[in-house]
């Protein structure tokens, strides 16, 4: 269904807010210290997760080497072994895969749901906006970790339910982040122009309004990933996330707590892994914010 847009060019599909898009983003990100460090850490994390997920680990993550229980880091076990003689490094890699699976699915889901709600609310305005955002307000009335706990309490622990918990918490946040820019962009001339040439509402929203709101959303995705990692680790730490014997960083940290005095590596490496993973996404988010939208600086 070719519309006027494709034939009479001058109406751009996305009159980008200055510096919001385009090929320059990556090169500018690479000149930003936070961005570079963040990118490196995130890539490191992604590699570890990919290897762990594909099963390319020094040992099978759940394999018990009973004679070698509780060994410190050595050539055979780079990060030592745990109470059951399982290789900590292998478990961390598989844990990275699990965390990534949770974080990526949860952020993708909540990004999709939240952005849709926020964009529709902002674009249509009026009663729809009012109702949708009041519903979102209900979710904002809960402290995030409590809301996540409530979801897990209702659905039961486990990887899939952790994803759902994070989705429930983060969708309203995405809705708010998406709604703001939609509100301001929909008043711009090129949107009126799009209406004037008779484009359908959904097309105007999808092709003209939304592309101009990506900058804050991209930043939010990066921050949401860091938060999702923390939540997954936190829920697992409390015994409500990933279930044993499946490895998760939070669970490993929690299991290592009681043994920390005699085997500090059981706490040190999972702790370091969590910190590096979260730090990576936080730095990347900061870098992206500087590059994509200087006006957003200072928001958390």
């Amino acid at each position: 269904m070719p519309t006027v847009t494709e034939t009479t060019q001058p109406l751009p599909d996305a009159v980008a807010l200055p510096a919001a898009r385009g090929p320059g983003v990556l090169s500018r990100l690479l000149r930003n210290i936070s961005g570079v460090v963040g990118l490196v850490l995130v890539l490191l994390f992604l590699c570890a997760g990919a290897l762990g997920g594909l099963g390319i680990t020094p040992y099978p993550p759940n394999e018990q080497h009973v004679p070698d229980r509780m060994q410190g880091p050595s050539a055979a076990y780079v990060m030592g072994t745990d109470l059951f003689g399982r290789d900590v490094a292998s478990r961390l890699m598989k844990g990275a895969a699990n965390s990534l699976q949770v974080a990526l699915s949860a952020v993708a889901l909540s990004g999709l749901i939240g952005t849709t709600i926020g964009a529709v609310a902002g674009y249509l305005g009026g009663l729809v906006d009012n109702i949708l955002m009041r519903i979102m307000d209900v979710f904002f009335a809960f402290p995030t970790i409590l809301l996540a706990l409530l979801v897990v309490a209702v659905l039961g622990p486990g990887l899939r339910n952790t994803i759902l918990a994070i989705t429930v918490v983060y969708s309203p946040i995405f809705a708010r982040v998406a709604r703001g820019p939609v509100l301001s962009v929909k008043e711009m001339e090129f949107v009126t122009a799009a209406h004037c040439i008779g484009l359908r509402e959904w097309r105007v929203l999808l092709r003209h309004v939304l592309p101009n709101t990506v900058a804050p959303l991209i930043v939010q995705v990066s921050l949401a990933l860091s938060w999702a990692l923390i939540t997954e680790a936190g829920l697992s730490f409390l015994g409500l996330g990933t279930q044993p014997p499946e490895p998760s960083w939070g669970l490993m940290l929690s299991e290592g707590r009681s043994l920390a005095e005699i085997a500090p590596w059981l706490v040190a490496f999972p702790g370091l892994a969590i910190m590096v993973g979260v730090l990576g996404f936080n730095l990347l988010g900061d870098g992206l914010r500087d590059v994509l939208d200087p006006r957003l600086r200072g928001l958390r």
């Binding site: 680790a233 936190g234 939070g250 929690s254 005095e261 979260v278 730090l279």
Partner: peptide, 17 residues
């Protein structure tokens, strides 16, 4: 940025250790 990246259960575990 370190403070934002160290979840409190991790810091708490370290402090208790």
């Amino acid at each position: 940025i370190i403070g934002l990246s160290v979840p409190n259960f991790l810091l708490g575990t370290l402090v208790i250790y």
